[in-house]
Amino acid sequence: MEMQKNIWYVTLLLTMIAGYCDTVTFVAADSIFSAHVTGNFIVFAYQIIKGSDAHAWIKLLTFPVFIFAVIVGGRIALKSVNHYTILFWEGIVLVLCGIASYVFGYLQIFSEWAIYIVAMTTVFAMGLQNAFGKLFAKETHGPTTMMTGNVTQASLDLGNLIKNGTNDADSLLSFKKQLVTILGFLTGCFLGAVAGKFFGLGTLLIPGLAMIICYCYHRNN
Rank of each mutant, 00 (worst) to 15 (best):
137 A>R: 15
137 A>V: 13
137 A>T: 14
137 A>E: 14
137 A>S: 15
138 K>V: 12
138 K>S: 15
138 K>A: 14
139 E>W: 04
139 E>K: 13
140 T>Y: 00
140 T>E: 10
140 T>D: 08
140 T>W: 04
141 H>Y: 05
141 H>F: 09
142 G>L: 07
143 P>Q: 09
143 P>W: 03
143 P>L: 06
143 P>E: 09
144 T>F: 00
145 T>P: 05
145 T>W: 03
147 M>E: 00
148 T>W: 01
149 G>A: 04
149 G>L: 02
149 G>Q: 04
150 N>F: 01
151 V>Q: 06
151 V>N: 01
151 V>D: 01
151 V>C: 03
151 V>I: 15
152 T>M: 03
152 T>Q: 05
153 Q>W: 02
153 Q>S: 11
155 S>K: 01
156 L>Y: 04
156 L>P: 00
156 L>N: 02
157 D>W: 02
157 D>A: 08
158 L>Q: 03
158 L>E: 00
158 L>S: 04
159 G>A: 03
159 G>F: 08
160 N>H: 13
160 N>G: 00
161 L>I: 12
161 L>M: 08
161 L>S: 05
161 L>C: 05
161 L>P: 03
161 L>K: 00
162 I>H: 00
162 I>Y: 08
162 I>V: 05
162 I>N: 00
162 I>A: 06
162 I>D: 05
163 K>I: 07
163 K>H: 14
163 K>M: 11
164 N>D: 13
164 N>I: 05
165 G>N: 08
165 G>A: 01
166 T>N: 13
166 T>H: 10
166 T>G: 07
166 T>W: 11
167 N>K: 15
167 N>C: 10
167 N>E: 15
167 N>T: 15
167 N>W: 04
168 D>Y: 07
168 D>E: 03
168 D>R: 01
169 A>R: 10
169 A>Q: 14
169 A>L: 13
170 D>W: 07
170 D>Y: 09
170 D>H: 11
170 D>A: 13
170 D>T: 14
170 D>R: 08
171 S>W: 01
171 S>G: 07
172 L>E: 09
172 L>F: 11
172 L>S: 10
172 L>N: 08
173 L>M: 11
173 L>I: 12
173 L>N: 08
174 S>H: 14
174 S>W: 06
175 F>I: 03
175 F>R: 07
175 F>P: 03
176 K>Y: 10
176 K>C: 10
177 K>Y: 14
178 Q>L: 06
178 Q>G: 11
178 Q>V: 09
178 Q>F: 06
178 Q>K: 15
179 L>H: 11
179 L>Q: 13
179 L>Y: 03
179 L>V: 15
180 V>R: 11
180 V>M: 11
180 V>F: 11
180 V>N: 09
181 T>A: 15
181 T>W: 08
181 T>P: 04
181 T>H: 08
181 T>L: 15
182 I>H: 13
183 L>D: 07
183 L>Q: 12
184 G>W: 04
184 G>S: 10
184 G>C: 09
185 F>H: 04
185 F>C: 11
186 L>M: 15
186 L>W: 12
186 L>R: 05
187 T>W: 12
187 T>C: 15
187 T>D: 09
188 G>Q: 06
188 G>H: 02
188 G>A: 09
189 C>H: 02
190 F>P: 02
190 F>R: 09
190 F>A: 13
190 F>G: 07
191 L>F: 15
